[in-house]
Write a protein that binds this DNA or RNA. Structure first.
Lengths: 171, 171
DNA sequence: TGGAATACGAAAACTGTTTTCATTACCGAA
DNA sequence: TTCGGTAATGAAAACAGTTTTCGTATTCCA
């Protein structure tokens, strides 16, 4: 089991690299570099976790309050098309966006108590899926596996929950 | 690997059983038995596969054209609450409903070419997930695993695709 | 059978997302 | 360096799927 810790500091060099990759994508596509896009992209890459449009917009507005959500949506689509970001949906009816991490593919555990979303990757799990697909004469392009449940560490879980509620109050 | 074939005939006895279970649920909750609910529920249980609200409404209207989608939505929620039906979302932005099959839990393979949704269940897969959760100090309430890809049997797949397109034309 | 509680259907409201449209910004060519 | 065509922006409207509202109709217990 490889567990992925999303709590590490944002790597400034990596962010720069991603920004450059996006700039290149924009150019390759014949699109234009704009202040808004730069703001949104650089804000996005400096956030961590599984970011909703709402969350991103809040941060973006701190840098430039005139940016509206249409532009945020549009830029997120570009990020997805560029391959630098993936869109995910965890069933609460809103899209979340996630910069590609070092580990390309991974699955998710979602705590229904505190909202924590953690990532994991397990090669045996992947292999088993391939085997099952094979047996069904099916070719997998991609898959998604989500485990919904609760943290067993109740203290940490409750702490996260309170933190989250406090944040919701403040917003 | 246990594969689940959704193409079997509708078992009339099983449908009756489910209708009875729903009736009991309605009573237990102090709700009322209505013609509309009966129509919707019995229509639903006679359909197979992963049914969207739209699809169900079309069938329901054949029996009673005056039934609107509000009632269909409401009744589906009741079915879910009763535990007889599960709601699923496969990322195309609309809810699909599925009567509990003989095998309680199962995962899905979704063909992106022909739209086929097939079900499977594998105990090793389940066990492995439990193990991974355990290692992460996490308790699984439920999970979902979806394999997106394509049928390797291209002929069958193309046939299904054409059938689907024909149906879309007719609608 | 009367009447309170519940359900119905149509339409309005809601949520998250996409599109429209008039205006502004970008950027290569002159 | 300005010009001008193209693309991007922001506000608001549109959209799709779903939920809620509200006035009317139905259920079902006393």
């Amino acid at each position: 089991m490889v567990s992925i810790n999303p709590n590490s500091k944002v790597d400034e060099d990596l962010v720069k690299e991603k920004e450059a990759a996006f700039a290149e994508f924009i150019q390759r596509r014949g699109l234009k570099t704009t202040r808004q896009r730069n703001t949104i992209v650089s804000t996005f890459f400096r956030m961590k976790g599984h970011i909703s449009v709402e969350e991103l917009l809040v941060e973006v507005k701190k840098a430039n309050p005139r940016i509206g959500y249409a532009t945020v949506y549009r830029t997120l689509h570009l990020l997805v098309e560029s391959g630098l970001v993936e869109e995910r949906r965890f069933g609460d009816g809103l899209a979340r966006y996630e910069g590609h991490s070092a580990v390309e593919h991974h699955d998710h555990m979602i705590c229904l108590e505190c909202g924590m979303i953690s990532e994991f990757y397990n090669p045996r799990l992947e292999a088993l899926q391939e085997k099952l697909a094979e047996e069904n004469n099916f070719e997998i392009y991609r898959h998604r596996l989500e485990l919904y449940g609760a943290c067993k560490d109740k203290e940490a879980c409750q702490a996260r929950k309170k933190q989250k509620e406090a944040r919701a109050q403040g917003a």
